[in-house]
Design a protein around this nucleic acid. Structure first.
Length: 586
RNA sequence: UGGCCCGUCGUCUAAUGGCAGGACGCUGGACUUUGGAUCCAGAAAUGGUGGUUCGAGUCCACCCGGGCCAACCA
């Protein structure tokens, strides 16, 4: 094909996936999708694709869960399949309905729809019990009456084989009777357990007669006191998958060793083929944050953050309150791909996904974070002009503008003035000119300081009436700064959020320290005296903006109201000047 | 130290025996009333040693490095 011909063609339909998805083979952009595509091709599951997202309702979802959620729902969507939302709720002591509700909210927020496919492992307790009975009848499971400590001791170590329990060869009839009595509540917690009879010498520790059921006299948040006998993960998960006719059961790498047991259970209770298959992928890790439930709980409980929705947390509730759009999280998940290598993703990649999304989504407004008063001495006292100011820059294809009042007294950003500016500082300084965004060019004539402290209190400037909005043609002014009218601007609180930790790997700690030692003391800076253009007052809480030259912000969905405006910084803009300043200051 | 899994630019990944490519980040430039966005250019990788092969990131062996497993959690 000739080059000219190519040039005339309309651009090809762009790949729906972002970033890393440079792979154009149909139906496959990672090893799991390749496997699904192969199963479809071979007809293994007769064309069915059924995945599941299986959180345990014992905590809040975080961005690591979002990766799994995007994978499971994404694969279903791409293949005309379905993805179930299943709560893996077999531990009555840690689970709660409030987590079920928050997880559902978060999954919906991410944009996924499970339709009618909402399931609970706890609904399968009866069925699971029947499967356990089958295992006992087949001589594949037994009631063990060793204590917890004894079981541990009998298990051996990774380099030494275990020892068989003296109860291992209990007759099937006795096992059956005992198991019934376990269910009936005749025993105390820990008195007996049900174990699979596999191999106490297996090199895979999980195959050394794994526990299937344990006694817990505890109320379950959904089943109440129906049960005092609760199935454990390795027994529950694979059978729940089988009950729901899952085809592809995707989980994280730390379950690799569990796969042998997953298959063993399905084979030995007699699940027909084709049956669900477990495939493992690497969990998400991001630098400068933590993504383990245990550590997140500590941050919340010890008060290092304000709660589960603290905007510094990588929880979905936190990201939402931070102003991160769910679409940005989806784009991020597409960018990072899916593989089996343990990895830690550069947080800059997340920030890129957020900026890239918000650039198209967030209208531009002016907000001065740290105000410095400017009096324009040649501007008539009492005069106010309404300047038309587009909400969108020239390269965002959206319409809309507002009127910005301009007067003799304005506020500019303190950082935009320097008495003794370094090289390449393009903003205001004594004797220098800058352009005011959407307005005029001003020149700094005088600096008024506090005689006692030397602090700059006010600038006296003059404006050039011929310079409105970029005029005249060809007039080159190096810098443009944002501003607000002193007479019109509204006071607001601005919360500047930054990364929660100072180091890329907070878990890498010296002896005697823990990850909280690396907390960034400046992860939240609250500015009480910011000033914002008045038009935003009518916007509902949760509205997102770009504060020009500062970053993307959201009006806090919880604390902001028309009488008391509060904005959270989602992410800064890319800041070339900060880079130059940091480098030169080194 | 038994078993399982994994090593590709700084980071995340593609290449399924045939030109090591993309993304983020970084560097330089263009453009710009946002030091934003956009555009252009650049630097940057197959852990090591052998072997099989016309040809190896890919297959084999050994070595090195990393992860997971000894909860009645998931």
């Amino acid at each position: 094909m000739s080059r000219a011909n190519e040039d005339e063609k309309p651009a090809a339909e762009p790949d729906r996936r972002v970033g890393g998805g440079s792979d154009t083979r149909p139906g496959a952009s990672d090893f799991i999708r390749a496997k699904v595509a192969e199963d479809l091709r071979s007809g293994r599951y007769s064309g069915r694709v059924v995945t599941r997202f299986p959180p345990e309702p014992n905590g809040y979802l975080h961005i690591g869960h979002a990766k799994s959620c995007c994978l499971n729902f994404g694969i279903a969507l791409e293949n005309d399949g379905v993805c179930h939302l299943r709560f893996d709720d077999t531990n009555p002591e840690t689970e709660d309905i409030k987590y079920v509700e928050s997880i559902k909210e978060d999954v919906r927020w991410l944009g996924f729809d499970w339709g009618d496919n909402l399931f609970f492992a706890s609904d399968y307790f009866e069925k699971l019990y029947e499967y356990a009975v089958i295992l006992i009848e087949r001589g594949k499971a037994y009631v063990d009456s060793l204590s917890e400590d004894e079981i541990r001791a009998y298990r051996g170590t990774v380099t030494r084989a275990g020892k068989e329990s003296p109860f291992r060869d209990r007759p099937i009839e006795e096992n059956l009777r005992l198991f019934e009595r376990l269910r009936a509540g005749e025993f105390a917690d820990g008195e007996h357990v049900l174990r699979a009879k596999i191999d106490m010498a297996s090199p895979n520790m999980l195959m050394r007669d794994p526990l299937l059921y344990r006694i817990r006299h505890a109320s379950h948040y959904r089943r109440g006191d129906d049960w005092c006998l609760y199935p454990l993960y390795d027994f529950t998960h694979c059978l729940s998958d089988a009950i729901e006719n899952i085809t592809h059961s995707l989980c994280t790498l730390e379950f690799e060793n569990n796969r042998e047991l997953y298959d063993w259970v399905l084979d030995n209770v007699g699940i027909a083929r084709p049956r669900p298959e477990q495939t493992e992928f690497a969990r998400l890790d991001i630098d400068y944050t933590v993504l383990s439930k245990r550590k997140l709980i500590r941050l919340v409980e010890q008060g290092h953050v304000s709660g589960w929705d603290d905007p510094r947390l990588p929880t979905l509730a936190g990201l939402r309150r931070r102003g991160v759009p769910p679409e940005a999280i989806g784009a991020f998940c597409d960018m990072i791909g899916v593989d089996k290598v343990n990895s830690r993703v550069d947080i800059a990649k997340l920030e890129y996904a957020i900026r890239n999304d918000l650039n198209q989504r967030a209208p531009r407004v002016l907000c001065v974070l740290r105000p410095l008063k400017v009096v324009i001495t040649n501007y008539p006292e009492g005069r106010v002009e309404q300047l038309d100011a587009p909400y969108w820059p020239h390269d965002v294809p959206k319409q809309g503008s507002r009127q910005l009042p301009f007067g003799r007294e304005i506020f500019i950003e303190r950082d935009d003035f320097m008495e003794d500016p370094p090289r390449k500082f393009f903003r205001l300084a004594p004797g220098r000119e800058v352009r005011l965004r959407h307005a005029y060019v001003i020149k700094c004539d005088d600096v008024i300081k506090d005689s006692a402290t030397g602090e700059v209190m006010e600038l006296r400037c003059t404006f050039d009436p011929d310079t409105l909005r970029g005029l005249p043609e060809g007039r080159k002014v190096k810098g443009t700064i944002h501003w607000v009218s002193a007479a019109h601007a509204l006071p607001c609180e601005v919360r500047l959020y930054d990364r929660l930790f100072r180091v890329p790997d907070p878990e890498d700690v010296a002896d005697g320290e823990d990850f909280t030692a690396h907390l960034n003391p400046d992860s939240l800076v609250v500015l009480e005296d910011a000033l914002i253009e008045a038009g935003v007052a009518v916007d509902p809480p949760g509205n997102r903006y770009q504060f020009e030259r500062q970053g993307y912000f959201i009006s806090d969905p919880v604390d902001s109201n028309p009488g008391s405006l509060v904005y959270n910084r989602t992410v800064t803009l890319r800041d070339t000047w900060a880079k130059i300043a940091a480098r030169d200051g080194r």
